[in-house]
Every structure is written in C-alpha cells, then in structure tokens.
C-alpha cells in the first residue's frame, strides 16, 4: 500500500532493499533496508564511502543482481531484471572496441530493428549531444578515457531510457575532465529533463549535479540522510566556487567523515587479520 502511494509521485522506487553476500568469513550485509524514491526529471545521487554497497545498489536497481530482498519499481511496475526504462552507464570503460563511435551509439537502435540509415542519423544526434561530432568514425581505442565515457553515455541515451542510472562514470578521469564532463551531463539532463540516478563517492560531483543526495553509512549500507540541494538551475561547474556549494560539501562531508573513518579502520583490521592468517 505504502509502495503504491509512493509510486504515484515517483518514477523510481526502491523499497526496503536488503542484500547479503556469503563470504568465506561468513555472511556480509552489503545493503540494509535502503528505501528511497526518485521523482520524474530529478537528479538524485547516492553517495557513501568505499565499501558501503553503492555499486551493489546500482546492480540491484539495474536488475543485474537477482539475489536481494525488497522491491524496485519503475512507474509503478515492479521489476525483477534489466528493464528497458532504465539505461545504465558503468564505472568501467564499456564501449565496444570493435565498433566505431557511431556504431557503438547506434547499438540499442540496432537491437530494436531501426533501419541502418535512420539509426546512424539518430546516433549522430546523440554523438553531437555529448560533444563528439567529428569522431563518429573513430574506434574507441583512438579516443581518450573521457571521450569513451561520453560514447557510453550517448549509447545509453540513444535507448531513450526513462531513468539514467550511472555508477561513478567519471571515477577513472582526472579532476578537470570530471568537472567538464559533469557540466556536459548536467546540460544534457536539463535539456532532456532526464531522470538521473548517480552513484558516486565524489562529494563535489554529487553537489554540483544533484537535486537530492542520499548519504549512505559504511557497511552495512543504510540510509544515513537525504539532503536537498537547493542551488539554482541551470548549473555549471562554476557553481563549485559559490558559498552555498561549499556549505553543502561541508555538510555532506560531516556526515561522511565518520563513515569513511569506520571504513578505513575496518579495512586495516581486515588486512591485519589476513596477515595473521598467512603468518
């Protein structure tokens, strides 16, 4: 009943998500009763320290991880696997090296049987949108890391998903490229009014782009707080120099610092235990 009510004003609802993994050291709870909802056209981010279960949550929402409890629904429809309404952009480089940029972007259009000429034209539209015009016939191996991530983004956008789900898409990039790509994503999100769910560990990136940020605790990953980001739109990376931006970053870092410390201590303890076992 509660889920049905939530679905009325939300395009994506995650309700009581619980994920546990069996490891040689016993079961580990990665995500513990995480619930949230994302409204249409909203830019929603999930932030947390390493090991808090962000990527697990990404896989659950994207339908790539079957073994979980709780419900994920899109537009009121409960989903139990990958769903055409959700387009995913991965953290790792995920372009197809054997396809040119235009063929990479046209991939989802090819799957729905769109004629070759039409899909090339459509693909070029999304290539222009991510600012890669002129590189249509290059192979991913001829592009930089940031350009390849833009190809992945264009490919996902070409499938015209209702929800764009991104897992730390700029994690492997340098800070300047990351800020500029952030601008690009913001521009596209505002242009398409694209509902976006971003998984990240980068506070500035989250504040720069989001309407709301869900802060997660370190293992088991629970919802610590949801922060509303009341910064003016349209935004660009220039916002990072504003006072309000700094306040949000400080506020979220206050929430995260304790969790990140806990994560670091846990990791050190784990390494010491491993050393003792091998000694």
């Amino acid at each position: 009943m509660a889920l049905a009510q939530a679905s009325a004003d939300a395009i994506l609802v995650a309700d009581d998500i619980f994920v546990q993994f069996n490891t040689p050291e016993g079961p580990i709870t990665a995500v513990d009763n995480v619930s949230f909802k994302v409204r249409p056209s909203e830019f929603f981010s999930v932030i947390g320290p390493s090991g808090c279960g962000k990527s697990t949550l990404f896989n659950v929402i994207g339908g790539l991880l079957g073994q979980h409890q709780g419900v994920v629904s899109v537009g009121g429809e409960t989903i139990s696997g990958p769903h055409k309404s959700i387009g995913m952009v991965f953290q790792e480089e995920s372009t197809f090296p054997w396809r040119t940029v235009v063929d990479n972007v046209a991939f989802p259009l090819e799957l729905v049987g769109m004629p070759k000429g039409k899909r090339a034209e459509r693909a070029r539209h999304f290539i222009r949108m991510v600012g890669l015009d002129g590189f249509e016939n290059r192979y991913p191996g001829e592009l930089s890391g940031g350009m390849r991530q833009r190809v992945s983004l264009a490919r996902t956008l070409a499938s015209e998903p209702k929800i764009l789900l991104m897992d730390e898409p700029f994690a492997a990039l340098d800070e300047q490229t990351r800020l500029l790509l952030g601008d690009k994503v913001l521009q596209i999100q505002q242009q398409l009014k694209q509902t976006t769910l971003l998984i990240t560990h980068n506070i500035t990136e989250a504040v720069q782009m989001s309407d709301r940020i869900l802060v997660m605790t370190y293992r088991p990953g629970k919802v610590k707080r949801i922060v509303d980001i009341d910064l003016p739109r349209p935004r660009t990376s220039e916002i990072v120099s504003s006072e309000a931006f700094g306040r949000y970053v400080a506020q979220i870092w206050n929430d995260l610092r304790e969790e990140a410390n806990r994560g670091m201590r846990d990791e050190e303890k784990h390494m010491l235990n491993q050393d003792e076992r091998t000694a």
Binding site: G62, G63, L64, G81, P82, H83, K84, I86, G87, M88, F90, E92, E93, S94, F96, F107, P108, L111, S159
Partner: peptide, 14 residues
C-alpha cells in the same frame, strides 16, 4: 570477455 561488456548486454536486455 570483460564482465562490464556482458553487463552492458544484460542492461540492454539481450
């Protein structure tokens, strides 16, 4: 084959 490429395929419901 890199797992992420397989996951891209899965995300497109292949």
């Amino acid at each position: 084959t890199r797992k992420v490429l397989v996951n891209v395929g899965r995300s497109f419901n292949l």
